[in-house]
């Protein structure tokens, strides 16, 4: 329990960054980036989530075991969505849309 407690300033900066990223994600949605729109939106969301996890959820000062288990959550989710998507991308060529 010897972790240093982050200052209010740190939380303030993280909050400010999150709000800027929110403005960025809304702004980027109004630009026509073609199929990159979804990638930009997801990339910004991932940055936001990393900030929330590291600072608000204190992963930064946490035990390595907490890192492993939070990473496993992401890994299982990636398996679920990734492998399902792989199936639809590769085994169903007669799909409408692209």
């Amino acid at each position: 329990m010897s972790h240093t407690i982050p200052s209010i300033r740190t939380y303030g900066f993280v909050y400010l960054a999150l709000m800027l990223l929110l403005a960025l994600t809304v702004g980027a949605a109004y630009l026509n980036l073609g199929s990159a729109n979804i990638l930009v939106a997801l990339a910004i969301a991932v940055v936001k989530v990393v900030l929330i996890a590291l600072y608000f959820m204190h992963l930064k000062g946490s035990n390595r075991l907490a890192w492993v288990f939070s990473a496993m959550g992401v890994a299982w989710l990636a398996l679920l969505i990734g492998l399902t998507t792989l199936d639809f991308v590769s085994r169903w060529p007669a799909l409408p849309g692209k």
């Binding site: 288990f69 992401v74 299982w76 989710l77 969505i81 409408p96």
Partner: peptide, 30 residues
């Protein structure tokens, strides 16, 4: 802390089913 992260991982998968369905339907019917 560890117990809570395990619980949150299962929660992520709980929502994950819906995110997965979303991904498939969005691809098929964009």
């Amino acid at each position: 802390q560890l117990g809570m992260w395990i619980f949150l991982a299962t929660e992520a998968l709980f929502f994950g089913g819906l995110f997965c369905a979303y991904t498939v339907y969005r691809r098929m019917h964009w």
